[in-house]
Every structure is written in C-alpha cells, then in structure tokens.
C-alpha cells in the first residue's frame, strides 16, 4: 500500500511535533494567565476586546493557530497511517485532514486579523 506522507524521511515532522507541543503548552499557559489572572474584575467584552485587538497579541494568536493546526493535523495523519489500512479510505481521510486543516486555518486567521474593538 502506498505511503501518503512527504517524500522525506519524517525526521523533521517527528522533531517539530515535539517542538510545537512544548510551544503550545507555553502559549496556552500564557493565555490562561493573561485571561484569568491579569486585569482583575470579571472577563467581559470590554476587558478582553482591547487585548484581542493588540497586534502583538494577534501575533501570538496566529502562532498558536498555526502550531495548533500543525500539531493536530500531523497527529491525525499518524493515526491514519497506522490504523487505516485500505488505500481508498486512507487517501480520502488524508485529503479531508488537509481540507479541514486549511479551512480552520483560513477561518482562524481571518477572525484574528480582522478583529476590532466595537464601542
């Protein structure tokens, strides 16, 4: 049965899965601290919106988005590689994995980039 991965060895994918995992944990921690332990008061639109509109925070969100999608998609691909043994299903699911990932990426990027504070 055909191998549906990159023509490469898989070394980079292995390493970057670990690197992205660690970075995701750090960003997630940062996100929780920012959201729940800074600024005091209840988490309202007025409190959160200015931060979401901040270009640096947008950068962080985009990094989170890209790494999260990469990590998830790579993980799902490995599961497909190991547990989907029929070639047709494997091609279908691997393609679907790509489509879903790109769609989420586009959707997320548009959401993050176009966010503005509404009075």
């Amino acid at each position: 049965m055909g191998y549906l991965g990159p023509g490469r060895s898989g070394a980079f994918e292995w390493l970057f899965q670990r690197v992205s995992g660690v970075v995701l944990l750090v960003i997630l921690g940062l996100h929780f601290i920012l959201l729940h332990y800074t600024g005091g008061g209840p988490v309202t639109y007025e409190a959160v919106a200015p931060r979401l509109a901040d270009p640096y925070y947008k950068g962080l969100q985009l990094l989170f988005l890209v790494l999260g999608l990469y990590h998830a998609m790579n993980g799902i691909k490995l599961v497909i590689d190991d547990y989907v043994h029929r070639e047709g299903w494997r091609i279908l699911l691997t393609s679907l994995n790509w489509v879903v990932c790109l769609a989420f990426g586009l959707f997320g990027a548009v959401t993050v980039l176009t966010f503005q504070v509404r009075p």
Binding site: S9, G10, A11, E13, D81, D82
Partner: peptide, 13 residues
C-alpha cells in the same frame, strides 16, 4: 534507518 519506513515510522505505541 533515516527513512519513513525506518526509525521514523515508529510512533511510540
């Protein structure tokens, strides 16, 4: 071993 049918095929199951 540096191949997608070599060591990298191991997914630490």
């Amino acid at each position: 071993l540096d191949d997608h049918h070599g060591a990298w095929r191991c997914h630490t199951i």
